[in-house]
């Protein structure tokens, strides 16, 4: 078992180490920017994956957590003079709290499946509308974080520094996911996904397990939101609480491989590549990327329900010679 644990974490170390080398190979801002936004989506997608992939609770409203993180980071700095680093941490905590509150309300009332999806969507939309009119959030004009380059303000001169920062956050998310996967909490979470009644009969506190997953999930999505605010220094209600992030956060793990550690990373990069390809091939017509995502989603659901990670596992199965050990 220890060797198995090590193997699980070793793959994370290798992937993160390889990605960490990229800034030494290229100084191209557009490449780094592409990767930063890809990793940002990975982080949000990993959040969705904890709840949706492992727990089977499909949220349509991860924008609620992403946006709360982004707004908390920005508002604490702009209105209350907070330093960026503690603001970032509080932003994550605020997103997690919103997750816990929405989770408590929905799971206690027994909402499942599409009802849960619709209610999360509704919460995100309510927050978006409130943020678009409340003076506190800058209403329609949004919130601008003052340019103040320097590590103490978490505003880095070089793209590489931002890149390493988001990579570190993604690394933490990968480790957290792996830890969940190999823990009792993870076993319970997957049991809840597979069959709630059977899980209850085996002593699993279904509501509490879902609530825990939702809180972790929201914290990861909020971290992505905090980073977004810090990287672009501007947010408004359409960005922070927009459906775009809810959609992309669920597309990444579904395309990459739902309920797997690396699925969101694979899926996020795939989405970004597709988005760029669409721009270059057909021009920048508004909404075109969404059409493309929709088509890819249909293809994935129809032909590769376990996503890219599932395809990889299948190919690996063909390539490795069958051993004597049955179903090993």
């Amino acid at each position: 078992m220890t060797t198995l644990m090590n193997r699980g974490f070793l793959s994370i170390v290798i992937v993160v180490a390889l990605l960490a080398c990229v800034p030494f190979l290229t100084a191209s801002n557009s490449v780094l920017n592409f990767l930063v936004t890809g990793l940002l989506l990975t982080l949000a997608g990993q959040g969705w994956n904890v709840l949706g992939g492992y727990g089977g609770q499909y949220s349509f409203g991860h924008a609620a957590f992403f946006g709360t993180g982004a707004y908390a980071t920005a508002i604490l700095q702009v209105r209350y003079g907070f330093n960026a680093w503690p603001a970032f941490a509080i932003g994550i905590a605020a997103g997690a709290a919103v997750g816990a509150i929405i989770g408590a309300m929905t799971f206690r009332s027994g909402l499942r499946g599409s009802y849960f999806a619709l209610v999360t969507l509704a919460f995100a939309e309510v927050l978006r509308i409130v943020a678009s009119v409340a003076p506190f959030t800058g209403a329609g004009t949004g919130t601008l974080i003052k340019l103040n380059v320097g590590a103490q303000a978490m505003q880095f001169q070089s793209r590489a520094a931002f890149y390493w920062m988001i990579l570190a956050l993604v690394a933490i998310a990968l480790v957290v996911t792996r830890l969940i996967e190999q823990s009792r909490f993870g076993a319970w979470l997957v049991a809840v996904r597979e069959n709630q009644d059977a899980a209850r009969a085996l002593g699993v506190d279904v509501t509490r397990v879902k609530l825990g997953a939702m809180t972790v999930s929201a914290a990861l999505a909020a971290a992505a939101g905090c980073f977004y605010a810090q990287y672009f220094l501007f947010i408004d209600s359409g960005i922070a609480y927009g459906t775009w992030i809810s959609v992309e956060a669920l597309l990444a793990p579904i395309i990459g491989g739902i309920g797997t550690v690396f699925g969101p990373l694979l899926g996020a990069m795939m989405i970004k590549v597709l988005g760029e390809a669409a721009k270059h091939l057909i021009g920048d017509a508004p909404g075109l990327d969404l059409v493309l995502y929709g088509m890819v989603l249909i293809l994935i659901v129809a032909f590769a329900p376990r996503g890219i990670a599932g395809i990889v596992a299948q190919v690996q199965g063909w390539l490795t010679p069958k051993k004597g050990k049955p179903h090993g």
Binding site: R184, A187, W188, A198, L202
Partner: peptide, 21 residues
């Protein structure tokens, strides 16, 4: 009511986790 997506061992382990963290 099996946990259909899990292996037999993983299914049973959900039960044994009740008293074994």
């Amino acid at each position: 009511q099996p946990f259909a997506g899990l292996t037999v061992l993983q299914n049973i382990a959900v039960g044994s986790h009740l008293h074994i963290p």
